[in-house]
Structures are given as structure tokens and as C-alpha cells.
Simulated scan of single mutants.
Amino acid sequence: MMDQFLWVILPYLALTIFVGGHIYRYQHDQFGWTSKSSEILEKKKLRLGSTLFHWGIIFVFGGHVMGILIPISVYEMMGISKHFYHNISLIFGLPAGIVAFIGLLILYQRRLTVKRVRSTSSKGDFVALFFLLIVMGSGLFATVFNIDSHGFDYRTTIGPWFRGLFIFQPDASLMETVPVWFKIHILAAFGIFATWPFTRLVHVFSLPLKYLSRSYVVYRKRGKTIRS
């Protein structure tokens, strides 16, 4: 029953809150739909931490897409062996994860130690950072200590289970042999999705698409006034 709850019921609960929470917040709190930038309060640490985290997380996200959403049969059809795949994931994925994690630590330390930033922080800010730290930390730990060419392969367990969620056929038995650090990583990710709509993370979906069709703002130099 616990496995059914964790790997069948809980994902859909988190997804429901994620989607419904965003709809509710957009309808009732559009003025709060922002990243609430604190750059004016402190710039140096924000610039470094934000750059490292955002660039690192982009590549980490790409690695997750390649490893979880793409079936292992696709790689086998392309002639990519298990050993080669895991070497590539370590060479490219591990540095990206380390960079993102370092950036996240800088941002967390900044929010705790800079008084002006801490005083303007909400509970949601710390909740989001807390779950992000668990997700990033457990993911790095799992990558370093649990993946090798002869051991656990998430493409045959986590991958099929995750893809099963999209067709409403998740198989909880696939998660029985998954190492604990991967399970912590996934459960913390559910926590992020469930709290996402109520934090500043909503700014991820605030793409400035209107700027592409907006008319140019024309500035003209004020001419000299001719006095008679």
C-alpha cells in the first residue's frame, strides 16, 4: 500500500496541485506572479549564484529528458551501449549538477546571511530552496555512488515507471529495487511540484513573448526651443 501511494497516488496529487495551483494563482494573484528580484538589495552573490544555478540546471534538465523520457530501446537501436551511455552521463551530467548545486548553495547562503534579503524573504522562498537542495544533493549523491556500467540502471526502472504516469499506467513494482537516494530525489521533486505554484518559482513560466510583437519605443532628442 505504501508503494502504491508513493509511486501511483502521490505523483498525481502533486501534479494536480501543480496545475490547479498555477491556474488559481494566475486568476487571483497576477501582480504576485513574479520572481521578486532582490538584485537591488545585493548583486554580487546573486549574479554568481544565479548564473551557475540556471546554466547548470538547463543541462541537468536535458540529461533527465535523455535518461528518463527516451526509452532504452532507442539507444540500443542507435548502437549506444550501457557502458558508453553512463560514461557520457557522468562526463557531462555530473559537472552540470555540481555547477547547479554550487550556485544553489550560494543563493541559499545569500538569503540567510544578507539581512536585507532575509528580511524580504517569505516562507515560500525557504521552502523552495529546501526542496531544491534535497533534490540537487540527493541527485548528485545517487549519480556518484549508485551509477556504474555494471550496476543499477534507472532507464529500466525509473524511466518506464515515469513514462507510465503519462498514460495512466504507472507500475509501482518497478520502483522496488531503486536505491534509496533515487527515491529521495524523486519524492523531493514531488515536493517542489506541489509547492511550486505558491512560490516565486512561477516566474519560470513568465516568458516575455509579447516583446516579440510589441511596437518599438521611439526616443527622440528634444530640440532646442526657439524663443522670439
Rank of each mutant, 00 (worst) to 15 (best):
Y108K: 13
Y12R: 08
S37F: 00
L107Q: 06
L90K: 12
H150T: 08
P95C: 07
D125S: 03
I192M: 01
L107W: 01
L69G: 15
V135I: 05
Y26R: 12
T195R: 03
G137W: 00
Q30N: 13
F166E: 11
F61W: 04
A189I: 02
K82Q: 14
F84V: 10
A128W: 03
T177Q: 13
V65G: 11
F168R: 05
W196I: 02
P11S: 09
I9K: 09
N87S: 11
F5M: 11
Y108P: 09
Q109R: 10
D125K: 05
L69R: 12
G32L: 01
S215Y: 08
R214W: 08
T51N: 13
F152Y: 01
I192H: 00
L129K: 06
I72R: 15
P95K: 00
L187K: 03
K45V: 10
V19Q: 11
T16G: 11
S35F: 05
K224C: 09
R110L: 03
T157V: 04
W7Y: 05
R110E: 04
S228A: 09
F205T: 15
M2R: 12
R222C: 07
A188I: 00
P197A: 10
I98S: 08
R111Y: 02
Y12Q: 09
L212F: 12
S38P: 06
A100P: 03
A172P: 11
M78K: 07
F31E: 15
T195F: 00
T199K: 02
T16Q: 14
L46F: 03
V202H: 05
S119F: 02
F84C: 03
G20L: 09
G151A: 01
V99D: 05
R222M: 10
Q4E: 15
G223N: 10
L46E: 15
L140Q: 05
I106G: 14
E42V: 09
W161H: 00
I70G: 12
W33E: 08
K43S: 11
F101G: 01
K82R: 12
K224Q: 12
Q30R: 12
A100Q: 06
L129M: 15
G49T: 06
S35I: 11
W55F: 14
G67A: 12
R25F: 04
F152E: 06
T199P: 04
Y219P: 11
Y24G: 11
I58A: 13
S73Y: 02
S138E: 01
F145T: 15
G20D: 12
G223C: 02
I91M: 11
I68T: 13
L69T: 15
F131H: 08
L52N: 07
A142E: 01
Y154G: 08
S119W: 00
R110P: 04
T225Q: 10
T157D: 07
D148K: 02
A96S: 14
Q27E: 13
